[in-house]
Amino acid sequence: MLARELMMVSRAAHVMQRTGLAMAGAMAGTFVAAQLAKGNVAVFSTLAFIATTIVVGAVGFYLGIDIPKLTVRATGRIDVVELLSAGGIFLAALAALVSVYGIVFDEIPPRAWEFVIGSWWFGGVVMLATAGLVGRQRLA
């Protein structure tokens, strides 16, 4: 009975952690969307784009940050899932950091940089989501 209760508490804590990470991803997506919307590019100012940025951030952070590791293998290969997760969080966080800077200091980047920032964000969260899905599938 005690083991079952401990397992339920552990699962609840894990869900709470994952939900917090999803909220952090949504918040970072909000910053990126707000910065890109300031650039007067029609596509970036739409409600659909802003909502997509927020949802993709939440899903990417939920799936891709806490990936279960396989047992250490002596194959000498690079773990692609770990690399995707690390690269994805770096790119997404970099895009969010640049966006927060732009919002706080009221800076609008040149149009080409808006696309770069957006690419960092979407590339990063796609890498995170892919890493999370692949990492969970290979354990199954």
Rank of each mutant, 00 (worst) to 15 (best):
L2A: 14
R4V: 11
R4C: 05
R4P: 00
L6C: 13
L6N: 15
M7D: 15
V9T: 13
V9Y: 09
V9W: 08
S10A: 15
A13Y: 08
A13Q: 13
H14T: 15
Q17R: 15
R18K: 15
R18C: 10
R18F: 06
T19I: 06
T19K: 06
G20W: 03
L21S: 10
A22R: 05
A22E: 07
M23L: 15
A26K: 10
M27V: 15
A28G: 08
A28Q: 01
A28E: 03
A33C: 03
A33Q: 00
A34N: 11
Q35I: 02
K38W: 05
G39E: 12
A42W: 03
V43R: 10
V43P: 01
S45Y: 04
S45V: 05
T46V: 05
L47I: 10
A48I: 13
T52Y: 02
I54V: 15
V55D: 07
V55I: 14
V56W: 11
V56K: 08
G57L: 07
Y62R: 13
L63G: 05
L63A: 12
G64A: 02
I67Q: 07
P68G: 08
P68D: 11
P68S: 09
P68L: 06
K69R: 15
T71D: 13
T71Q: 12
R73H: 05
A74D: 09
T75W: 02
G76C: 00
R77Y: 07
R77Q: 13
R77H: 11
I78E: 06
D79L: 05
V81K: 01
V81D: 03
V81W: 01
E82K: 10
L84K: 00
L84T: 01
L84E: 02
S85H: 04
A86L: 09
G87D: 00
G87M: 04
F90L: 14
A92E: 00
A92C: 01
L94G: 03
L97R: 04
V100R: 07
Y101M: 12
G102F: 04
G102N: 11
V104T: 10
E107F: 14
I108A: 11
I108N: 08
P110D: 13
R111M: 10
R111I: 13
A112T: 07
A112D: 06
W113C: 06
E114C: 08
F115C: 04
V116E: 02
I117G: 05
G118Q: 04
S119D: 06
W120R: 00
F122L: 12
G123H: 02
G123V: 00
G124L: 01
G124I: 02
V126S: 11
V126H: 04
M127P: 06
M127D: 06
M127L: 09
M127S: 13
M127N: 06
A129P: 02
A131C: 05
L133T: 10
V134T: 02
V134F: 07
R136K: 08
Q137M: 14
R138F: 02
R138A: 06
L139G: 09
A140G: 15
